[in-house]
């Protein structure tokens, strides 16, 4: 059984657009002081990948496995075909994992461009309930480019969205100044997800590394960019929509770079390829009580 993110139906596109607009208008530097009130939390590192291997090495098989193919567009009409080739997923020798989307131009026999990319997951290798999850990433860009650092409930055999999905960071490459943090669950998935945007002022996420993180505990998920809290999602946010499915069960981590799909629409001729999502590290902490 395959589990996918943002399993939009056709009639949810408008809802998604409205959600995004609202999110953008709600985000701003001014309310930083209001939401920056956090209880003191003490964390201990329990799992990480620093991606310090030599250039051209595949990710550590003890930490990551590949998801391959197109899988019917992963539920989102995505264009890319995921591979386990080092051209698409490998360490760069400078301490980063490079997930690279490549484009093969149309030919006489194949009138459409073909896109290859990468998607790696910790399912079956590392899962955890609660804690702090962070990654330092330099993002790719361009219309049709859709990188994500996210999590799915390890109980995904019960089906999506019941298993729960936490999107720590996803970006639409046609808006390189904005990332989104979201949760999907029963009654609030796809275009109805609980989501909020974080925008940089007069700067972009693809020119420097930024740290994307959540702190997740019982009845809360807090979202951070560069240690600035911009969103807290609690059961209150899903009241009247569905059940809170983020308590007391473990999740696994996903890193991927999608091309095309309902969230971003297709790449244009002016989308530069290849596009690379550079991940300096992924670190997971547990709270020390």
């Amino acid at each position: 059984m395959n589990f996918t993110k943002n399993n939009y139906r056709n009639n949810t596109l408008l809802a998604m657009a409205v959600t995004l607009v609202l999110s953008v208008s709600l985000t701003g530097c001014n309310d930083k002081a209001d939401v920056q009130q956090l209880p003191q939390r003490k964390y201990q590192l329990v799992w990480s990948d620093e991606f310090d291997s030599v250039a051209g090495a595949s990710p550590n098989v003890k930490k990551w496995s590949f998801q391959l193919g197109n899988n019917n567009g992963w539920g989102n009409a995505e264009y890319e075909i995921y591979t386990n080739k080092t051209a698409n997923v490998s360490t760069d020798g400078s301490g980063n994992l490079a997930i690279t989307a490549t484009k093969v131009a149309p030919t006489a026999s194949n009138p459409y461009a073909t896109y290859y990319s990468g998607r790696i997951i910790t399912k079956g290798l590392f899962t955890q309930t609660y804690g702090r999850y962070e990654a330092r990433i330099k993002l790719p860009y361009g219309p049709g480019i859709w990188p994500a650092f996210w999590m799915l409930g390890a109980n995904d055999s019960i089906g999506w969205p019941n298993c729960g999905e936490i999107d720590i960071m996803e970006l639409n490459g046609s808006k390189p100044t904005i990332i989104n943090g979201s949760v999907h669950g029963p009654g609030y998935s796809g275009g109805s997800a609980i989501t909020k945007s974080f925008g940089l002022t007069n700067a972009r996420f693809d020119t420097n590394f930024h740290v994307f993180a959540i702190e997740w505990g019982k009845d809360y998920i807090d979202y951070f960019v560069d240690n600035v809290l911009y969103e807290e999602i609690t059961p209150t946010n899903v009241t009247g929509k569905g059940n809170w499915v983020f308590n007391d069960h473990p999740f696994y981590i996903l890193l991927n770079l999608a091309v095309g799909g309902n969230y971003v629409t297709g790449p244009s001729d002016q989308t530069p390829f290849p596009q690379t999502m550079l991940v300096d590290y992924v670190r997971v902490y547990q709270e020390v009580k």
């Binding site: 480019i145 046609s174 989308t271």
Partner: peptide, 11 residues
């Protein structure tokens, strides 16, 4: 020359 615009496109 090519520049990437705020809309993510190369021009």
């Amino acid at each position: 020359g090519t520049f990437n615009l705020p809309t993510g496109i190369n021009q």
